[in-house]
Nucleic acid binder design. Structure first.
Lengths: 233, 233
DNA sequence: GGCCGAGACTTACCTTGTAAGATCGAGTGC
DNA sequence: GCACTCGATCTTACAAGGTAAGTCTCGGCC
């Protein structure tokens, strides 16, 4: 096999932890997290699976790594925000920061699932949380209240929270909606709710939620509650 | 091989979807969700892996199934609650229901992770949500507000929400806390918060949270916000 | 007895993560 | 120029795991 400067493909770019992790994100973006296997990842890099193990200890470390990459991306976007966070400004600043996290995660739909499995201690995630707490401090929060606030926000702090029903893929969704219809009489409130709320987007049976609006509603509910506590403190 | 009535082991209890799913929960309870493989599950049932496929289509269906089993357990516990939900009582009723969900999930620590991956449409989960909405209706919620409320609660409605830092297993936790210390100067707020809040449980570096308290704090924050909206509606 | 079908078993294949060792190539000292 | 070293990559191989396909085994019924 002639190795000397193959013309078409890039000639021998060395691997590196950085390159491996960035490629992993790309693979997941293209084919979902299930498609991220060591072999496929290597293929994407023009290398063999085992070569990756020189740069990462194992697949777990790849997953830890891509969380850090994504969190870094979030920090980049959030870092460009420039709104005052002193006093009452804290709420807007926190809101913006969280919404930029969400914006990034919407570009990587597989990422929330990975974050959740990670028992996260990624440096970038730590920095993200630290900055959030900082904004609350600017708003006059005690550390104790900030601590409670972080828990109250939960996964919403990172820009996601479990959606109630995701339509999912074709076959499963079809069976699910059939099942739902057969149970309709046992679910009066759910059905009632759907009947009333399903006006704007009447084509899909279950995906009638404007997820962005729901997300912001929940976020604001929490932020408003915290703001009230902050004021009476 | 003599098949006729082996004395020690139970003599030929037939498999069934029910039995398979219940065994799956037990396996996950004992060894974590990673230990739930078709072969191990079969072994637990005194059968061969492939025999399970007569009762469930594939492993995905096992996972769907155990979500339903757990949700059924939640419904059983929640069904025994008997507090009035009319008018202002809604909040207590919802609170109790959610806390019993949490109680069940704490007995199955692997379950939240499975719920999250499920694109859930399990009958029992639907019934659970339906009942929650019903309680809100009793409290005078419009369907629209109830809908927003469900999203605001997010995964908290099911009795869990992502914990910020889980200590995890020994080796990982050790490396994580070393990394944390090396970054401490870049995380002033996080460190400040820990210093102040870490009084009650000073032995563990990171697991200083009373998770139950945090959970209830966030839950109440949301419920109180909703209650205010309900009254002004 | 012969048939049949539900339910369980056997075999075998493919994908995945990864351990162990071979190889390759750019420096480096001689 | 040549051997030696060592970081980086490739080869080979294996153990789990999910599951497709086919086989065996009864108990009930004609």
């Amino acid at each position: 096999m002639a190795t000397e400067s193959v013309p078409g493909t890039d000639p021998r770019v060395p691997l590196s932890r950085e390159r491996v992790l960035r490629a992993a994100v790309k693979v997941a973006d293209e084919g979902g997290i299930k498609s991220l296997t060591m072999r496929r990842l290597a293929e994407h890099l023009g290398a063999e699976a085992m070569s990756l193990y020189y740069h990462v200890a194992n697949k777990e470390e790849v997953l830890d790594g891509i969380v850090d990459v994504i969190a870094g991306e979030i920090n980049d976007v959030a870092g460009r925000i420039d709104v005052p966070s002193e006093g009452a400004g804290w709420k807007k600043a926190v809101r913006e920061r969280i919404l930029s996290a969400r914006e990034v995660l919407l570009r990587h739909p597989w990422a929330p699932g990975v974050f959740e499995t990670r028992t996260a201690m990624s440096p970038a995630v730590l920095r993200y949380h630290d900055a959030l707490i900082g904004l609350m401090r600017d708003g006059g929060f005690s550390y104790d209240l900030a601590h409670q606030a972080m828990h109250a926000l939960g996964s919403r702090a990172l820009g996601f929270s479990q959606e109630l029903f995701k339509p999912g893929d074709g076959a499963g969704a079809e069976k699910a909606s059939a099942m739902f219809e057969s149970m309709a009489d046992q679910l009066p409130h759910l059905v009632g709710m759907m009947m009333e709320v399903a006006h704007d987007d009447p084509d899909s049976t279950l995906g009638w939620c404007d997820e962005q609006a729901e997300f912001e509603f929940g976020l604001d509910l929490v932020l408003d509650g915290l703001d009230r506590m902050r004021e009476t403190a």
